[in-house]
Simulated scan of single mutants.
Amino acid sequence: MPVVDMHTHFLPKQWPDLAAKFSAEPSSNPWPSMRHTEPGKAMLMLGDKDFRPVYEACWDPAVRLAEMDRDNIDIQIMSATPILFAYAKKAEQAHYCAQLFNDLALDICSHDSNRLKALAQVPLQDIDKSCEEVSRAAKNGHVGVQIGNHVGDKNLDDEGLVTFLQHCASENISVLVHPWDMLGGDRMPKYMLQWLVAMPAETQLSILSLILSGAFERISKDLKICFAHGGGSFAFQLGRVDNAWKHRDIVRQDCPNIPSSYCDRFYVDSAVFSDDSLQLLTNVMGEDRVLLGSDSPFPLGEQRVGTLVRENKVLSEQAKTKILGANSMSFFNL
């Protein structure tokens, strides 16, 4: 069975100057760009501010493949770095960005299309345009779509977003939900606390939005949806949620079944970075619903992809085979 890393990110080496193209945009809502600093290294910019140092694995397929070979990864599925989503922009601008970055992702994959696959992005603030673009991308070779976990104040239970998820279900397009634009930023300015605290909370919020709102009751069971970073804090807090559902009517008013019963409606990746966390995750979700995901090539990702799963002392060999590749092969229709 091929080993599949389904959660990796890319950045094109270069792209058009979006700030110049859409010059009327206010400086309070800046565009991303790339500033190359030395061979093989660059700084991802947001307006005139440094956002994140990156290196050539983001854009160079030869480097990606070499790192895959080093870690014994057969297939890698890449998705846009969420800063490229453009959800806060005008819909037509975000649509332009989606088409641009989707096509650039396929350019990277064309270096070895058997081993490099891509997820699309869509202008999620406009559901009609999103449905149009995800269908176009699927026909062009994308194996699914990555979406942010919210659009402004709209969580995944928003009726428009539910409509988009149902469209994906009807066209057998797999969905990866990635947290972004994290809550509580003013209280977390240092130490990457937004990524360490708010990001797991954002993901749990997304899952519970679908469960407690009853959205999973309205969406076809054909939907294949996966949440990044092991579902954030969801697995650890599930007992608390079940307890609240049992004892508070305001928790269960729109949710007809106990929250833990919905774990068979979605998937999570394995990017949790400790044996205990991985074991809890597989206990909660089941070994059929955890997919190998590294979050590479970023510093918060797994540095030797697959090590956590391969070296786990508790998981059975059958479970490891599923997590390392079989589950992703099925999820993404590979």
Results as ranks from 00 to 15, higher is better:
P179E: 09
L165T: 08
I211E: 03
S174E: 08
L210N: 13
F164C: 11
D222F: 06
T203R: 12
F164S: 08
D181K: 15
K224Q: 11
G184S: 06
L196G: 07
V197T: 01
K190D: 13
W195E: 10
F164R: 00
P189V: 01
C226H: 00
S170E: 15
A201N: 10
K190I: 02
A201Y: 13
M192S: 11
M199L: 05
I225L: 07
L193Y: 06
M192C: 14
M192E: 06
P179T: 01
C168K: 02
N172F: 10
L223Y: 06
A169G: 10
W195I: 09
L210T: 12
W180V: 11
C226N: 03
F164Y: 03
M182K: 07
C168E: 08
A228V: 08
G160S: 04
F216T: 08
S220P: 13
I225C: 07
G185T: 03
E202D: 06
N172P: 13
S209C: 11
Q204T: 10
A215L: 09
L193D: 11
L193S: 08
D222Q: 11
P200K: 04
P179W: 00
L205P: 03
G214F: 15
L208C: 04
L210H: 08
S220Y: 00
L161H: 04
D186T: 00
P179D: 02
L208R: 01
I225E: 12
L161Y: 03
P179I: 06
Y191I: 13
Q204I: 12
A198P: 07
G160Q: 05
I225Q: 12
K221Q: 14
E171A: 11
Q194W: 13
P200Q: 03
